[in-house]
Design a protein around this nucleic acid. Sequence first.
DNA 1: ATGTGACTTTAAGTCCGTC
DNA 2: CGACGGACTTAAAGTCACA
Lengths: 71, 71
Amino acid sequence: MTLEKLIGNRIRCLRLQKNLSQEKFAELIGVHRTYIGMVERGERNITIQTLLKIAKGLDVHVWQLLKDIDV
Amino acid sequence: MTLEKLIGNRIRCLRLQKNLSQEKFAELIGVHRTYIGMVERGERNITIQTLLKIAKGLDVHVWQLLKDIDV
DNA sequence: ATGTGACTTTAAGTCCGTC
DNA sequence: CGACGGACTTAAAGTCACA
């Protein structure tokens, strides 16, 4: 399991808890719709600025997206 | 204060606690010496993989580099 | 031992679409 | 609605000479 996939899973989980589609969520945080899909699938090595956007959109702190993820 | 600078400061602090020069630290984690300098100065929007390398070199978890950083 | 500017190469991130 | 593909554009990764 890569760091990207673990983070991606966590993001997907939190997004679904907010009942948002990838499209809606992407629009909300200002990234492209296809990109969120790639991130959730663990296909992209995200930058901290993008991670920050995502965290804000999910109403969590950046570090909470990474906490207890061990790799 | 940007997220990059806050993380950079934290990295520099932890590196110095280990009595490592940028050169030694860069060599240890397998990145270029000038790159670490840029990261510590907050000039780079680093990816999570780079952050992971740095965290490992500092013997901390990735999320500990971000914990309580609020931006 | 570190800062800086100018790079080249690689990958992040966008935008079009189809299934 | 989400996976996935191809062709992009922008920016990060990574290197170097010199201050």
